[in-house]
Design a protein around this nucleic acid. Structure first.
Lengths: 199, 199
DNA sequence: GGAAAAATAGAACGATCGTTCGTGTTTGTC
DNA sequence: GACAAACACGAACGATCGTTCTATTTTTCC
């Protein structure tokens, strides 16, 4: 790996960490330069604009997310076990760095700010929902879910649940959050499970 | 009403509008002054600090929220009708101004920024959850919910659903969002309804 | 209507923002 | 080890940030 790519990776790593705790647009060129012991202009040269920096931080976040959350889950047994693994990994992801999930906060911040950042983020979110949809589909195939369910609806339901956990965990810091999430997940799965007396 | 209170109200109205679309901390003193045809210092004098301005915008948002979402819902029949009214009002609230719900975005932004703003926001969110809890409780009393349910769990479930709708609606702008939310609400209510063959 | 009080404006502050430019320093290649 | 390319730095840019003054206008009250 060339020197340039190496420092760029370092910058993005620190940038992701800062963006997770402070939010994506509180990561200024100056503060990020200071955090990586670089000059503003030296750091800036890697990205050409702040907008590009933000996009690349998101891209890097996406890589880490895929590697740590999605891929491991896909290696587990299809069906409910895979869903449980995905949820567990996601919760670990959002709990790891203070400030929670960068995608959630960025989605909230950039909804009404057109541009590269918003476009990139939107694609990432669509990929994430597609991922959830596929996992639901595999649960159907595995026989853990009924065949007549709506996989996109499940994606909505599950993501909503995670968003609820996210807010509770980060803002309210209630001790019961984990239990609430588990209960909600159980209820959710029950509405998709094959019923013993199913029509 | 004194002149001061009058202009202050105007400022907070415009501030709420801007904060809803741009996010709470992109509302700068300068831009808000320009939007209200005031001088920076003239506007600043009403709040003594930006932190206070942010808190007061949140307080004003809370007042509007109570008046438009909560109070009308509480006037409807207790039970599921009241829940449906609350959800409908909330969705109208988050759809009205571009950028969605200021409380959701602010919660996301201020989770890891200690200070007056975070403290105030946290109290507001607790009040909101308490509101949801009470509405669940009244649904139990009205006989629309089983007696053995956990009202706090219902608050978690319902708020999660709204957060899901919020993200879908604002970022993805999918046409199916409304339908997804309705389906999810129906599923949710079913898990709390008295069952015909209940133990 | 005149005096006290409140409200607003204007200029300036140090700080930081994103960005540009010119100049060095380090790196990889022959 | 020389040469070109890549990389990093420091200084400076105009702009805007939150905030503090002083001065002037406007409102309020007797």
């Amino acid at each position: 790996m060339s020197k340039g790519e190496d420092t760029k990776r370092t910058i993005l790593g620190k940038g992701l960490s800062m963006a997770s705790t402070l939010g994506l647009d509180l990561v200024s060129i100056g503060s990020l330069a200071k955090a990586t012991n670089m000059s503003k202009s030296g750091l800036f040269a890697h990205f050409q604009s702040k907008e590009n920096l933000q996009v690349e931080i998101l891209r890097h976040a996406g890589d880490v997310f895929a590697e740590r959350i999605v891929v491991p889950a896909l290696k587990t047994q299809a069906g409910i076990p895979r869903i449980m693994a995905l949820v567990a990994n996601w919760i670990q992801w959002t709990s790891r760095l203070k400030g929670g999930c960068i995608f959630v906060s960025a989605s909230s911040d950039f909804t009404d700010r057109p541009g590269k950042v918003r476009d990139f983020l939107l694609n990432q979110q669509k990929e994430w929902l597609e991922c959830l949809r596929r996992i639901a589909k595999s649960a159907v195939t595995a026989g853990d879910f009924r065949e007549d369910i709506d996989c996109d609806q499940f994606a909505f339901d599950l993501y909503s649940l995670l968003l609820g956990f996210h807010l509770y965990h980060n803002l309210l810091e209630s001790e019961e959050t984990k239990r609430r999430q588990e209960k909600a997940l159980e209820q959710l799965l029950n509405t998709y499970r094959p019923t013993s007396s199913n029509s």
